[in-house]
């Protein structure tokens, strides 16, 4: 939801390591970031601040999958995404999910090795390898499910 941008961010973790010189904060252990309707969970969250002041967050989870969850704008549906590693680029408002990636929104779901999700335009790209080019040698295809909407029944 767009309004999330104005909400305060609350991060809980078992511990944090701050490296001001490189403007890097590493949160580890049951990390939960909440901001308005946005929730990011994982075992480790690395937040770095770019030169232009924008933050990039990388959530990973060696014991399982990192995940994010946010309400969609103007609808009561939630977008839920998960992957072994989630990179969030705050400037482009793009999330990039790596390995066993999945984004589900209102029952519609995309699943593959690599997902790019643009939260503003709700565009997404799913492939079986990083980068946008589909590689023939991908081990199996990515998958999308679209639930029947009653309007086009």
């Amino acid at each position: 939801e767009r309004a999330d941008r104005d909400k305060p961010v609350n991060i809980e973790a078992n511990r944090v390591t701050v490296d001001d010189r490189n403007k890097v904060h590493i949160f580890e252990g049951a990390v939960v970031l909440t901001q308005g309707t946005l929730t990011i969970k994982g075992e480790k969250l690395v937040v770095t601040q770019g030169a232009d002041g924008f933050q990039n967050g990388v959530a990973t989870n060696d014991k399982g999958l990192a995940s994010f969850r946010q309400k969609r704008d103007g609808s009561d549906e939630y977008v839920y995404g998960e992957a072994e590693r989630i990179e969030y680029d705050s400037r482009a408002e793009k999330a990039r999910l790596f390995n066993r990636a999945m984004v589900n929104s209102g029952g519609d779901e995309v699943r593959g090795h690599y997902i790019e999700y643009d939260s503003i335009s709700e565009n997404y790209l799913v492939t079986n390898a990083p980068g946008s080019k589909p590689t023939a040698t991908g081990d199996g295809r990515v998958r999308a499910v679209i639930q029947p909407k009653n309007e086009n029944r």
């Binding site: 709700e122 799913v126 990515v142 998958r143 499910v145 639930q147």
Partner: peptide, 13 residues
């Protein structure tokens, strides 16, 4: 419902 499989999927929800 519809299920789609491919090497690469992109689009707007």
């Amino acid at each position: 419902g519809t299920e789609i499989r491919a090497l690469r999927i992109s689009g707007t929800r």
